[in-house]
Amino acid sequence: MTPPPATTAPRAGDLRTEGLSYEVAGRALVDAVDLSAAPGETVGVVGPNGSGKTTLLRCVYGTLHPTAGRALLDGDDLHALSAKARARRLATVPQDGQAAFELTVRQVVAMGRSPHKRFWEADTAADEDLVTAALARVGVADLADRVFPSLSGGERQRALVARALVQEPTLVVLDEPTNHLDIRYQLEILSFVRGLGTTNLLALHDLNLAAYYCDRLYVLDAGRVVASGTPEKVLTAELLATVYGVTAEVDVHPKTGAPTVVYLPPPAS
Rank of each mutant, 00 (worst) to 15 (best):
M1R: 12
P4S: 15
T8R: 07
D14L: 07
D14N: 05
T17N: 10
Y22P: 02
Y22I: 13
E23Q: 12
A25F: 12
A25C: 09
A28E: 12
V30G: 04
D31Y: 06
G40F: 11
E41R: 05
E41C: 08
T42W: 10
T42L: 14
V43E: 06
V45S: 11
V46D: 01
P48K: 11
N49D: 09
G50P: 12
G50E: 10
G52N: 11
L57G: 03
R70A: 14
A71I: 03
L72N: 09
D74Y: 00
D74G: 15
G75D: 11
D77N: 13
A80I: 04
L81K: 04
L81A: 05
S82H: 01
K84L: 09
R86F: 01
A87T: 06
A91K: 10
V93P: 07
Q95Y: 10
Q95T: 12
G97M: 07
Q98M: 13
A99L: 15
A99E: 11
A100K: 07
A100Q: 14
E102Q: 14
E102L: 15
E102M: 12
L103P: 00
T104G: 12
V105S: 09
R113V: 08
R113D: 03
P115E: 12
E121F: 03
A125P: 02
E128L: 14
T132Q: 13
A133T: 15
A136D: 14
V140M: 07
L143S: 09
R146P: 00
V147P: 04
S152M: 03
G153M: 02
R156N: 06
Q157P: 04
R158H: 03
R163D: 02
L165V: 13
E168F: 00
P169Q: 03
P169A: 07
T170L: 00
T170A: 13
V172L: 15
V173L: 03
V173M: 05
P177H: 01
I183G: 01
G197N: 04
T199F: 00
N200L: 15
H205I: 03
D206G: 00
L207W: 00
Y218N: 02
Y218L: 09
V219L: 02
A222R: 15
G223Q: 02
V226W: 05
A227H: 03
A227G: 01
G229S: 05
G229Q: 08
T230Y: 05
E232Y: 02
T236L: 03
L239F: 06
L240A: 06
Y244H: 15
V246A: 10
E249A: 12
V250N: 05
H253L: 05
H253C: 08
P254A: 13
P265E: 05
A268Q: 12
